[in-house]
Design a binder for these strands. Structure first.
Length: 206
DNA sequence: CAAGAGATCATCT
DNA sequence: GATGATCTCTTGA
């Protein structure tokens, strides 16, 4: 795989573009003596101060402050008291926007991911159902990658966690659809701001 | 397979 | 005091 780190300028582009172009890219988390790598296969865009689905729609708060930073950081928050969600902050400083990473395909470090998700359950690479369930959802992938609140605000230009990859995915390989779980967002709930790789087994929902 | 309920708590009002 | 960018388990067809 091409493991050159993405330039920080990449994240300053419009969120819809970033959300689509990080599909197929690799997210790399260096932890101890090994690294966890996943290919991003599903994302959602949360864009600006008026997007009613976005945490930023009611202004800057302690929780969402990172969304207002210059693109190229990660925004991590706790949802439903139990799960973390990972976002890639986009666009210019003071314009709150981010791409939620909803699903990845495990590439490297699958066994540690298994233990992060399933505890002491014996690793079974033949159990396709459980392998797919490792990272086919925003809360699941954070658990598999060991991502928690302490990652909030980390810079993707650093060595601990970053995105890498080469070839751009062709538009014909990308499907757009409504975002998941934002029925409260009035006229914004039907925006086609969710993107996923067609025919990928690790997408959370078809 | 689909639908529904419960878990669980930091954050915001 | 209410809620949520989710997940797992159970029930029932």
């Amino acid at each position: 795989m091409n493991s050159s780190k993405l330039s920080l300028d990449f994240y300053l582009q419009p969120t819809l573009k970033v959300a689509q172009q990080i599909l197929g890219k690799y997210i790399i988390h260096n932890v101890g003596r090994y690294r966890l790598v996943g290919k991003i296969v599903e994302t959602e865009a949360y864009i600006g101060p008026y997007d009613l689905a976005s945490h930023a729609s009611r202004g800057k708060t302690q929780r969402n402050a990172v969304m207002f930073e210059k693109g190229g950081k990660i925004y991590v928050y706790l949802i439903y008291g139990m799960y973390y969600c990972l976002n890639i902050v986009t666009e210019a400083k003071d314009y709150p926007a981010a791409a939620l990473v909803r699903a990845v395909e495990p590439i490297e470090g699958i066994e540690p991911m298994w233990h992060n998700r399933y505890g002491d359950l014996k690793y079974d690479p033949e159990n396709k159902k459980k392998i797919i369930s490792l990272t086919n959802g925003p809360g699941k992938l954070c658990r598999a990658f060991g991502i928690n609140q302490s990652f909030n605000g980390l810079d993707l230009g650093g060595e601990r966690i970053y995105l890498a990859g080469g070839a751009r995915v062709r538009a014909a390989e990308i499907a757009a659809s409504k975002r998941i779980g934002v029925d409260y967002a009035k006229e914004y709930r039907n925006k086609p701001w969710r993107f996923h790789l067609k025919n990928n087994l690790f997408v959370s929902k078809i």
